[in-house]
Amino acid sequence: MQEMPRITLKPTQSALIVIDVQPVLMPSIHQGDVLTERIRFLARIARLLEVPVFATEQNPSRMGSTVDAICELVADPAPFSKMAFSGGGCAPFMDALKASGRGQVVLVGVETHICVSQTAQGLLDAGYEVVVCPDGVSARSLERHKLGMERIRDAGVVPAHTEAVAYEWLGTAEHPRFREALSIVKQHP
């Protein structure tokens, strides 16, 4: 197990990546509705604080596009189509991330033990600081989710709750967008 890096998330340095939150997958995901709300919460905060929100879609011709509740919060360009299980295996996605100039990546989506884990490790290998939100990722079973989080953490990825990420991006209650952010927090308990 690697020593945990210390990451202080900054909205000017971060990007939020939503991995494969697609209609065919979500009904079989453990607490899929709750997960969608946590992802929507963090994406709303990201948009408020001008953190780019990117999304990947696994084989969208078969699995469908990103669910509407999330897709409306994704930055241009539209979600990136991929066949690889790692978002890092999607060249257009990596090009857009690099072009954003952001060195910190916060990951949410499905499935923890497959695409989230492989994307996190690929981003680490590419030199990014990576945070995964355990309440913002899931799998078809709680056991798969837990095993995925163990592997992610053992790889040196930092876990952080979606609300912790939001407050870290804000930094202070004196942030000019704090009241708007607090309203979003209250809408997504």
Rank of each mutant, 00 (worst) to 15 (best):
D95R: 02
A84D: 15
D154G: 04
L123F: 02
A46S: 12
R140F: 13
D125M: 15
T36Y: 04
Q118P: 10
T12H: 14
A173C: 15
V53Q: 04
S81L: 10
T66K: 05
L16G: 03
L123Q: 03
V18Y: 13
T66H: 07
K82Y: 12
I70N: 06
F85W: 14
G89M: 08
Q22H: 14
R140E: 10
I17C: 09
V67D: 15
A91I: 06
I45N: 13
Q31L: 10
S141D: 12
A160C: 08
Y128I: 01
P189C: 08
T56I: 01
I19H: 03
E3Y: 12
A69K: 02
A75H: 06
I39S: 03
L42G: 01
D95A: 04
R179H: 09
P23F: 07
A84E: 13
L35Y: 04
S138G: 12
V165Q: 08
C71S: 14
R177A: 15
A96Y: 08
V67K: 07
F41G: 00
D154H: 06
D154P: 02
A160P: 01
A75S: 15
G89E: 13
G136S: 07
E37C: 14
S117A: 15
D76F: 14
P60R: 11
E50Y: 06
V53D: 05
V53G: 09
V53L: 07
G64L: 12
S14V: 05
L73Y: 12
M63F: 13
I70H: 08
L124Q: 08
V53I: 14
W169F: 08
G103T: 06
L147S: 07
Q121N: 14
T8Y: 15
P92E: 15
L73Q: 08
T162F: 09
V165D: 00
V108P: 06
V18E: 01
P23A: 08
S28V: 09
L16F: 12
S117W: 14
E129Y: 05
H113A: 04
D135G: 07
I39K: 05
K82N: 10
D135K: 01
K146D: 11
Q2V: 04
L107P: 01
K10L: 14
L123W: 05
I184D: 03
L35C: 03
V21T: 02
H113N: 09
I29Y: 01
V18N: 02
V110M: 10
P189I: 11
D33C: 05
V105P: 02
A43P: 11
G87H: 07
Q118C: 10
R102F: 09
V131A: 05
H145V: 03
L25E: 05
S141A: 08
P79A: 09
P23I: 02
V105R: 00
A160L: 11
Q121K: 10
V21D: 07
S61A: 14
L35M: 04
F80Y: 05
A164C: 12
V51Q: 02
L73A: 08
I184V: 13
C90F: 09
L48E: 05
R153W: 07
L142E: 15
A15S: 10
V131E: 00
K82C: 13
G64N: 11
V116L: 00
S138R: 00
S138D: 02
R179V: 13
Q31W: 03
D20E: 06
A55C: 05
G148P: 10
R151V: 09
L124H: 03
R44G: 09
A75K: 02
A46L: 06
E3F: 12
S183H: 11
